[in-house]
């Protein structure tokens, strides 16, 4: 922490400052790396343990001092995927999450377009109306919602687990904030050229919002992926169930009276892969422009 000066790649330091800043930079970087490794280790510890345990046999897991890769190898994964049908649940969950992401991004882009680039009465009220939905707790909504699904004939279908999630206050809010930060000159050009609203969205706004779209997609994907209570209630057909409920099924699995934690850990690691994949794919655009700006 001793360092007071900090050099970056962008500056062209003079001969004199270069030397001192080099050592400072080394010290500073070392500190940053150490702090990062330390905090990432702490943050990742439960998951590292989960990965280790997913390779252990049931008896090995219960030995608290046994911290090595276990003897079960990948057999827990195999059992989880085949015998407990996790593969099927994963496919269902991927379909559900992709539908929700695409639906939510599309709907929210349209709504944000209207909110930012249209003049219409009660703008503020409409926006508030959308934002307020953040505050309705899910658990109690479930009962009326379930009846609604039955009334619509949607129960036990993909519609039931995606429909209620394809609009969201957060996504509209984020897109709206992002659009307001887009330079007025661009908007002005579009207006002078007489570009229609949808063309304006596709040609100007979307290319300028890649980062934000990536960000909303990641967050939405993870949110959708994590749904548990709602699918459990509304999907009655086991083959249409989602991964989170599938993991719950694993918890009921016990071998000779002992909960098979290896299997549960393997299930957790498997369920972690798709969101992780999405994160890896989208992390670059995400970091480039995914920030909330205020105008």
């Amino acid at each position: 922490m001793a360092t007071q000066t900090e050099s970056t790649q962008h500056t062209e330091p003079t001969q004199e400052t270069q030397r001192s800043s080099l050592s400072a930079r080394f010290e500073g970087d070392l500190f940053v790396h150490l702090a990062l490794v330390g905090s990432i280790f702490l943050v990742g510890l439960p998951l590292i343990l989960a990965v280790i345990m997913s390779t252990q046999s049931t008896t090995e897991i219960y030995e608290v001092t046994n911290l090595g890769v276990g003897s079960a190898g990948l057999s827990n994964y195999e059992t989880a995927l085949t015998e407990y049908n996790l593969m099927q649940y994963m496919v269902n969950s991927v379909v559900m999450s992709v539908v929700i992401v695409v639906g939510k991004v599309t709907l929210s882009l349209l709504a944000a377009l209207a909110l930012v680039y249209y003049r219409f009465p009660y703008e503020r009220a409409v926006f508030t109306f959308i934002l307020l939905t953040l505050l309705v707790p899910v658990p109690v909504r479930i009962v009326p919602l379930f009846q609604l699904m039955a009334d619509l004939g949607w129960a036990n279908s993909l519609l039931a687990i995606t429909g209620p999630y394809i609009a969201s206050a957060t996504a509209v809010f984020l897109f709206r904030q992002h659009f307001t930060s887009i330079p007025e000159s661009l908007v002005e050009n579009a207006r002078l050229d007489g570009v229609g609203p949808l063309a304006f969205l596709v040609q100007v706004l979307i290319p300028m919002s890649k980062g934000m779209i990536a960000g909303v997609s990641v967050i939405t994907f993870i949110y959708a992926w994590n749904q548990y209570l709602w699918p459990l209630i509304v999907v009655s057909d086991q083959s249409k169930q989602v991964i989170q409920v599938g993991i719950k099924f694993l918890q009921g699995a016990s071998q000779s009276g002992l909960t098979e934690w290896g299997l549960i850990m393997a299930g957790a690691v498997i369920a972690l892969l798709p969101p992780l994949f999405v994160l890896i794919v989208l992390h670059r655009p995400l970091l480039e422009t995914f920030a909330i700006q205020q105008k």
Binding site: V99, G103, G153, N156, S157, L158, T162, S236, K240
Partner: peptide
């Protein structure tokens, strides 16, 4: 706005033997 998915959903509903 989600005509495509809605189609899929209907099909699935029917698969369940008309239960729902």
């Amino acid at each position: 706005g989600l005509a495509g998915c809605s189609q899929g959903g209907q099909e699935q509903t029917q698969d369940s033997g008309g239960e729902s």
